[in-house]
Write a protein that binds this DNA or RNA. Structure first.
Lengths: 246, 246
DNA sequence: CGGACGTAAATTGTCTGACAATTTGAACAG
DNA sequence: CTGTTCAAATTGTCAGACAATTTACGTCCG
């Protein structure tokens, strides 16, 4: 199952760790010990070091010299900054998508996506997450800028890192759905200004919701002064506990 | 002189290669053979591989499995996309800087920068480049978003990769200087809308100038169809020529 | 002469094991 | 308790080995 072509080991490890972070298997702040991971997953330390260099460049982990690697942990301030940029970029994407809706097969593609997404059961969590992803990525693609998808990818992932535990209430998914409808309408009608401002409001609301959830949860809120530092502690005992349970 | 603390080798190599790319020692499309560079600069292949992983993540080089590393080469389309994002981000930065000019020591810092930059001799090339950098980075810092400086850093560098050969005429530096004045004024007067639109026009002009220069130069323009592919050729002869002349 | 083909060389990608530098944990002393 | 000392764990770097893969080049055939 772990058979890969020559030259793809680093990519496989990169993707494995990345998934581990996004799914919550590795928690923010958790230290990642290379030798143990190499042993567990089955690639050499060199391979892991290369993968970690890339993960660090994409801000998914922090890599401090002589202290190793830990899953990146964001302060509320940094989260707010990420949302600010995301609002800007996605707002722009919505504007461009509206401007270009009648080029090529854009309208067809957008409608195909929208048909899948529009009538969702607000109770079906998994479908909502997947469709939400599809909705946003389609708009970003239709904006026609080659770099926008990658940039937003790098912005959204650390945010999801916090949100994977966020439980949206039914009322919130309904609100979100309604906002999607406003955005979709503006794009299909080719109204850039409306599309941009609707998208910006949508992202602002997501930001507020995230911070509200964060403030209400016990583990993550209120820790600005002290707990921002000790990201690289959490040492294991002497011999060899299971650490992260496979 | 190449003495570094334990744990900084990769960073040193990263910075060395990066400088080599930005100063033009390594040309876009040029292949970088790890074994030779390791021998020449004096670190092991493992160290170089890690450095290249990071360089690839920051889009300064391309890293194709089993074909190695080459300095990143941008199509005109990709350049335009970069300028589009830069316009958006820097425009936003100017807006935020204007909004926040009366917070903390912002006005003092901005004026300190502006005093250095305002009365420049349009003929002094080196001073212009340095001051231009200072002008833009100061505004981005005053915007107060922690991620904005890094993101713009990653956007500007590949652009400079093309511009290092761009020679600005005296008339162009004067125009640029005048635009800086408009932006500075809007920021100091705390007018976000004016600051943003002035900055956007400034970036648009830089984009146009870059493309004009590109179209006029023999080496880089007009090559969309064929020369976009053979980025990884340029093989050296059998034994060992100097390759890139130290 | 030109192109398909095959072989040899060069290069890449990965792994292993070694070692020094550095940090960390814990025992110890005051 | 607080600071010091020491041993263990971990990191960072390196050299060398090897298979996989690409690339260069010479050969053969039309």
């Amino acid at each position: 199952m772990d058979e890969h072509r020559h030259g793809e080991a680093v990519d496989f490890v990169f993707e494995t760790i990345r998934q581990g972070i996004l799914t919550g298997r590795f928690a923010p702040g958790q230290r990642l010990v290379i030798r143990d991971l190499a042993e567990e997953i089955g690639y050499s330390r060199s391979t892991f070091r290369e993968a970690f260099r890339r993960l660090a460049a994409e801000k998914l982990v922090s890599l401090v010299p002589n202290r190793g690697v830990a899953v990146q942990r964001l302060t509320p301030r940094e989260m707010a900054d990420l949302f600010e940029i995301r609002e800007l970029l996605e707002g722009h994407a919505a504007r461009r998508a509206a401007e270009r809706i009648d080029q090529g097969d854009h309208r067809r593609r957008f409608l195909a996506m929208w048909e899948k997404v529009r009538r969702d059961d607000p109770a079906d969590r998994a479908a909502f997450i997947e469709h939400n992803q599809l909705f946003h990525s389609t708009i970003v693609e239709l904006a026609g800028n080659t770099r926008l998808p990658e940039m937003l990818g790098q912005l959204q992932l650390p945010i999801l890192m916090f949100q994977w535990r966020t439980i949206m209430t039914r009322r919130e998914t309904e609100t979100s759905q309604a906002e999607h409808e406003t955005i979709a309408k503006a794009i299909l009608e080719g109204r850039p200004d409306q599309a941009e401002s609707a998208m910006r409001r949508h992202v602002q609301r997501a930001k507020r919701r995230t911070f509200d959830t964060l403030a209400g949860s016990p583990g993550s809120a209120g820790n600005d002064a002290k707990s921002a530092r000790p990201a690289l502690s959490t040492r294991r005992a002497g011999h060899r506990p299971s650490r992260t349970a496979r």
